[in-house]
Amino acid sequence: MRCSINFITLDSPAGSRPVTIRTYQPGDERTQAVLFNGAAFALPGFKPATEDDVRRRTRARGFDPTSRFYAVENDMAVGYCVLEPDQGRLGYPWCRKGYEAVAAALYAAAVRSARDRGVRSLFTAYRRDWDGVLGFFADRGFHKARDMVNYAADPVDLPTIASRGGNPVRRLTRADIPALAAMGRGVVRVSDAELEQHVFNSPHFPAEAFWVVEGGGGPVAVGVGLDNPNWPDVKKVDPLAPCFRLGAFGAEGLNAKRVNGLFSYVVTKPEHALPAGLALLAEVSQELTEGSVTSLAAQCPTDAPHLVGFYTRYFKEQGRFPVMELTL
């Protein structure tokens, strides 16, 4: 399958034929892996891509071949850039050595495609020590919106909670979705309908993984705890990698990394963060450690300081990565 877009012409480094920007076609998987590995191998924390890695993404449900852009010169692909329009995520244009000039055309093609699709804002996320990559986006108007902070905790280090202050903890129901959506404002970045689908129709975890702290006038907080022995332990993943953690509030609708023992929560008011968080942590950690979990994981955006304060108090920060945004 192939979808063409308007040609963009640049002076090539070798002074040869103009550069053509085209979209994905079958067989680009190997090319894309080679281009990334050749361009990124010297960066800190580099993890090589394989043809199979790329193929899994191109065969995933909902894959859009018109959102991947390849720069071709003299019948050779010399760079690529990936747009994920449903998420609003834009990738860095990785280019073969000596052909870095085509990055501008790849970026322009991806941004134009986003605008044509009605995407109102874009974001990108890379390791904090990839200065050249982050600088590329900063030079084009992206600003740092937040850091995503990754945490881990040993269950034996968590506080023993004898009392939850009388607030009952129960399982989440569909009737709680409006309250969850309201308390997640500023953290949760999907619509209410999408949030309900995320909770009750996820192929990765059951709705029973979500808990509610009840207050006098309704739900005070909602938390989630995920237990899957097939997922990696949090201490075995790269905490600086720009990976959103599956199940963490704020990662809905995004490509996310599965980590066993994930705990996350949101609250109605900042003043509820400590007592409600402790109540949920007690309930969730007990259930998880009775299963396959030996370490708890968490992830939280820095623009939710009341939540960051809780995790900083009871978890250990592993690392963080910046999220940069651009309004179109």
Rank of each mutant, 00 (worst) to 15 (best):
S163Q: 15
Y151I: 01
S121W: 13
L122R: 10
F123N: 10
D157C: 01
W130T: 05
D131F: 13
D157S: 05
V133D: 12
I161T: 08
Y151L: 03
V119N: 11
R112K: 14
S113C: 12
G118P: 06
A162H: 12
A125V: 07
F137P: 07
A162N: 15
R115K: 15
V149P: 01
V133A: 14
G141E: 08
R117H: 08
G132T: 09
G132I: 06
D116H: 12
R128T: 07
F137A: 12
G135I: 00
G141W: 08
G118L: 06
D131P: 00
V119M: 15
V156I: 11
S163N: 13
R146P: 00
A153P: 02
S113V: 01
D157E: 06
G141C: 10
L134F: 08
G135S: 14
K144R: 14
A153E: 02
A162Y: 09
G132V: 13
V156K: 11
L134D: 09
A114G: 09
T160A: 10
R115W: 02
F123Y: 14
G132P: 05
D116P: 03
A138E: 12
L158F: 03
G135R: 14
F136V: 13
P155K: 00
P155M: 00
N150T: 10
G141R: 07
A152D: 05
A162D: 15
F137L: 09
V133F: 08
